[in-house]
Amino acid sequence: MDPLGTGDPLRLGPYRLLGVLGEGGMGKVYFGQDSAGATAAVKVLRPELAHDQNLAQRFVREAQMAQAVTSTGVARVLGAQTEGGRPWMATEFLTGPTLDQAVGAHGAFDETAVRALAAALARTLMDIHTAGLVHRDLKPANIVLTSAGPRIIDFGIARPEHGLTLTTTGQVPVTPGYGAPEQALGQRVGPPADVFSLGAVLVYAASGSPAFSGGHVAAVQYEVVHGEAQLGRVPAQLGPLIAPCLGKNPAFRPTPCQMATAFAPPRGAERIWRHGPLATDIKQRERTVRQLTTIVSGAGTAQRMSRRRLLTTLAVGG
């Protein structure tokens, strides 16, 4: 997390903004807190893009998509303002590293942890698909590992299964190496595309390396469409379970329900979120957030923390 910079708003709706969680081409995501002390991740469209009808439509759609999914495996939508000068959307703030951060810090997951991850994400995909949606951008950076398990975030390019895409010809709508072959080819996609993405995510979690690689985007996309997934570093017991998810023909991929059954972890596997190095990482982030919100909203000595220490706390919290 970075401190607010010049030009950043101090408040959006009921949320006082305390730091910057991230930013992209469309906008920024802030760490916010309302008057009751509840925290949120507040995404706002960049001011110079707010009048772009296509981007505004995509932003509104993201809010609507996320609200349609009531699964505990996604970040809940807390509020949205899509009218006016700066459309924003507030979602539940999830405390924990993303999957790519966790693998980078602690290494590849063991078999039991991969099974726990796979089963939880498959159940969440079931809920997303039951709501009539396709996520379309499942990747390690869109999976947050919390003390309650993995949660899927960012419905920025999600759309109804039978809806029309808002992307234009020539755009790459997903992160190369995680989008299904039919996405890379610009074809209509359905729930099997999310299964392909989940398979690629599990390869990364189990091996620490992507399922498809190349020297540039086009090379990676070529491998997705024509090449074979790199499963050499995946544990032998998991390879046969993951490989069908990465099939080129979406009709032959397993369903999320079948995946949840096939990857069923042994009893007690959920301890990965509560014990061990990953759990320690999560707990440290939870303590930092509690400390930050106490500093901002508390009374007495808690409010007298120096600006230098506050900025340091913000940085560590990210």
Rank of each mutant, 00 (worst) to 15 (best):
residue 306 S to L: 10
residue 240 P to T: 06
residue 138 L to N: 09
residue 258 Q to V: 07
residue 253 R to C: 06
residue 20 V to Y: 03
residue 57 Q to M: 03
residue 25 G to P: 05
residue 146 T to G: 09
residue 268 G to D: 13
residue 36 A to N: 02
residue 47 P to V: 05
residue 294 T to Y: 08
residue 72 T to A: 15
residue 158 A to R: 07
residue 155 F to H: 12
residue 128 I to D: 01
residue 274 R to W: 05
residue 23 E to N: 05
residue 85 G to S: 10
residue 247 G to K: 03
residue 297 S to E: 01
residue 113 A to Q: 14
residue 125 L to I: 05
residue 305 M to L: 14
residue 124 T to F: 10
residue 284 Q to M: 08
residue 213 S to F: 08
residue 235 P to G: 02
residue 179 G to L: 12
residue 194 D to M: 10
residue 262 A to K: 04
residue 7 G to N: 04
residue 102 A to E: 02
residue 69 V to E: 10
residue 82 T to V: 14
residue 221 Q to R: 14
residue 65 M to H: 14
residue 305 M to H: 04
residue 79 G to S: 12
residue 304 R to M: 11
residue 49 L to Y: 00
residue 45 L to W: 00
residue 268 G to M: 05
residue 170 G to N: 07
residue 231 L to S: 05
residue 213 S to P: 02
residue 147 S to T: 12
residue 49 L to P: 00
residue 42 V to P: 07
residue 69 V to A: 11
residue 294 T to D: 14
residue 252 F to H: 07
residue 240 P to W: 04
residue 23 E to K: 11
residue 5 G to Q: 14
residue 263 F to R: 08
residue 125 L to W: 07
residue 140 P to G: 07
residue 117 L to D: 13
residue 267 R to G: 10
residue 180 A to S: 15
residue 229 A to E: 08
residue 87 P to N: 14
residue 257 C to D: 14
residue 230 Q to W: 00
residue 302 A to K: 04
residue 141 A to I: 00
residue 67 Q to C: 03
residue 102 A to D: 02
residue 184 A to L: 07
residue 58 R to V: 02
residue 37 G to T: 05
residue 175 T to Q: 05
residue 119 A to Q: 13
residue 102 A to Q: 02
residue 312 T to C: 01
residue 135 H to C: 13
residue 256 P to S: 10
residue 131 A to T: 08
residue 229 A to P: 09
residue 247 G to S: 15
residue 77 V to K: 04
residue 232 G to Q: 14
residue 23 E to V: 01
residue 112 T to M: 09
residue 151 R to V: 06
residue 164 L to N: 13
residue 30 Y to D: 10
residue 278 L to K: 08
residue 52 D to R: 06
residue 8 D to P: 09
residue 211 A to K: 07
residue 189 V to N: 09
residue 282 I to R: 14
residue 133 L to W: 12
residue 116 A to M: 12
residue 304 R to A: 11
residue 166 L to Q: 11
residue 91 T to D: 03
residue 308 R to D: 15
residue 314 L to K: 01
residue 233 R to M: 12
residue 91 T to H: 09
residue 273 W to M: 06
residue 145 L to M: 11
residue 20 V to E: 06
residue 262 A to L: 11
residue 101 Q to E: 15
residue 191 P to H: 10
residue 29 V to H: 03
residue 88 W to F: 13
residue 184 A to F: 06
